Amino acid sequence: MLKKNEMEIQFASQSVNEGLARTAVSAFFSQLDPTVETLYDIKMAVSEAVTNCIIHAYEGNGEGKITIKCAYEDDTISVEIIDQGKGIADVEEAMTALYTTSDDEDRAGLGFTVMQSMMDEVFVESKVGEGTSVKMKKSLGN
């Protein structure tokens, strides 16, 4: 039997909403009865992507919107995090471990590295001045 489902949510780019993003995505994919480890990986990847939107795309101003689209078909889940922020000039450079545009010393520049380690595929599209889309996939292996 083919299993298909999808959802979409949108919220303000405020750090308080990072937990909302993790919880909503976790609840959606819990229908598939993933392992605790797999669910943790998905939540961490979503958290990193949302944090990137808040800190980098909107520079923490809390005024932008973040959209999350989730879907699954059979045993493959997909998550897309979208912002209409400032965009990334060089996606390849931005995905390099330890690269950050933030002056905040608490930022390690590992967001994309964490996403790549938690998910099977991570694809980033960005246009300066228009925003960024981070698409991630993971097989549940069921």
Rank of each mutant, 00 (worst) to 15 (best):
L2P: 04
N5F: 03
M7R: 02
M7Q: 11
I9V: 15
F11T: 01
V16A: 06
E18K: 10
G19D: 09
G19W: 01
R22L: 05
R22T: 05
S26M: 04
S26A: 15
S26V: 01
Q31V: 00
T35L: 07
E37T: 09
L39W: 00
K43A: 15
V46Q: 06
V46Y: 00
S47L: 12
E48C: 10
E48F: 07
V50H: 08
N52G: 10
I54N: 01
A57E: 15
Y58Q: 08
Y58E: 05
E59K: 13
E59W: 02
G60V: 00
N61R: 04
N61V: 03
G62F: 04
G62D: 06
E63K: 10
E63H: 03
G64A: 02
G64K: 13
K65G: 00
A71F: 11
T76D: 03
S78H: 02
I81R: 00
I81H: 00
I82C: 05
D83G: 05
K86R: 12
K86H: 01
A89E: 14
A89G: 03
A89M: 09
D90R: 06
E92K: 14
E92I: 10
A94C: 09
M95W: 05
T96H: 08
A97P: 05
T100Y: 09
D103C: 06
D104K: 15
D104E: 13
E105M: 13
E105H: 13
D106G: 11
A108N: 14
G109N: 12
G109F: 11
L110C: 09
F112V: 14
V114C: 15
M115F: 04
S117V: 03
M119L: 06
E121L: 09
E121W: 01
V122R: 10
V122Y: 06
F123M: 06
V124I: 11
V124K: 08
V124A: 11
E125L: 07
K127S: 11
G129W: 13
E130I: 05
G131H: 07
G131M: 07
T132Y: 14
T132E: 02
T132H: 12
S133P: 02
K137F: 00
G141R: 13
G141L: 06
